Simulated assay, not measured.
Amino acid sequence: MTNVQQGGRVALITGASRGIGAAVARLLASRGMRVVVNYRSSRDKADDVVASIGSTGGRAMAVEADVRDGDAVLGMVEQVRAAMGEVEVLVHSALIPYAIRSFEEISVDELGSKVEQEMRAAFLVTKAVVPDMTSRSYGRIVYLGAVLSRRPDEGMIALGTAKAALSSFARFVAQELGPRGITVNVVAPGPVGGLLHATLDQEQQQRMAAQTALGRIASPDDVARTVAFYAGDDSGFITGTTAPVNGGLTMD
């Protein structure tokens, strides 16, 4: 870890070594924030994200922590405070592993483990940054949800149920923290390109894209732009909401 020049809000992005988290880190850095790229095991990928941000004049650092470990989370926030200052923006995008099974196949332990670990991680990272946000009377918290919390799909009961719990949690936290100048929102993407390539063939991806009104699946950058809105000052009077970044796969 190295010290980072001061200036710009400090944004901590969990699970930022790849995918949506990496896209968010790059975008927030391009908008002047000092970015913390959290990772659990992918040190090389996290360093690549930091290097790419630095190559364009941005400021970033990588910090290892398993967001399900309370001591590791507190240690991460302390490192950030020493190197950059107090965390003002939290984007929680770390993906917690889960079983892909139908209701008939999944066990209560597999379902319960995903819900428990999802909530544990969200709770711990939020708890760790709220004191500093409170002291500054300013904070932006953004959780990565999923369209599956409202639109069930085969084999995704564990992920969908956990993300539904996360959305409910976010509303309670938003209500409690609002008087402190802290907003809390959820960005709930549908299928995202890159994340699907390892699990779906081209025909399956095309079929999924055809279900959206816009005729394509999202890119990590599509999701990152919505996250960046919630992470910035333009969203200052919006809290307790969920943004469906799914190209019209679902419509309210």
Rank of each mutant, 00 (worst) to 15 (best):
Val192Glu: 05
Ser107Pro: 04
Val130Trp: 14
Ile157Ala: 13
Leu74Phe: 14
Leu90Ser: 02
Arg68Gln: 13
Ala158Thr: 05
Thr2Ser: 08
Arg151Asn: 09
Ala170Met: 05
Phe103Ser: 14
Thr250Pro: 08
Leu95Cys: 11
Asp234Ile: 12
Pro152Ser: 08
Arg26Thr: 11
Gly85Pro: 13
Leu148Asn: 13
Met76Gly: 02
Gly181Trp: 13
Arg120Lys: 10
Gly19Thr: 00
Gly70His: 12
Val147Trp: 02
Val50Glu: 12
Val35Asn: 14
His92Leu: 07
Lys45Pro: 00
Asp132Ile: 03
Gly194Met: 06
Gln202Met: 07
Gln206Arg: 10
Asp221Met: 15
Ala164Trp: 02
Tyr138Val: 03
Gly58Trp: 01
Thr250Cys: 11
Ala213Val: 12
Leu124Met: 13
Gln5His: 05
Asn246Met: 08
Lys163Glu: 10
Asp44Asn: 09
Ile217His: 02
Ser107Gly: 15
Val73Phe: 01
Asp44Ile: 11
Gly193Pro: 00
Gly160Cys: 12
Gly15Met: 05
Gly19Phe: 01
Val4Glu: 09
Ala22Arg: 04
Ala22Thr: 07
Gly240Tyr: 01
Leu95Phe: 08
Arg18Gly: 11
Ser55Lys: 10
Gly139Phe: 14
Asp201Ala: 04
Ile141Trp: 02
Val87Asn: 07
Glu104Ala: 07
Ala128His: 02
Glu154Thr: 08
Val91His: 03
Leu12Asp: 02
Asp47Tyr: 05
Met251Gln: 14
Ile53Gln: 02
Ser235Leu: 07
Gly75Phe: 06
Phe103Ala: 15
Phe103Thr: 15
Thr161Ile: 04
Arg171Leu: 08
Ala210Tyr: 13
Ile141Cys: 12
Arg216Phe: 01
Gly248Tyr: 11
Asp234Arg: 14
Asp48Trp: 14
Leu195Glu: 06
Tyr98Ala: 10
Tyr39Trp: 01
Asp109His: 02
Asp44Pro: 03
Ala218Pro: 04
Val80Cys: 09
Arg81Val: 06
Leu27Ile: 05
Glu203Tyr: 08
Asp233Met: 13
Gly145Asp: 08
Glu64Arg: 11
Gln5Thr: 11
Tyr138Cys: 09
Thr161Ser: 14
Leu166Cys: 10
Tyr98Ile: 04
Ile100Arg: 14
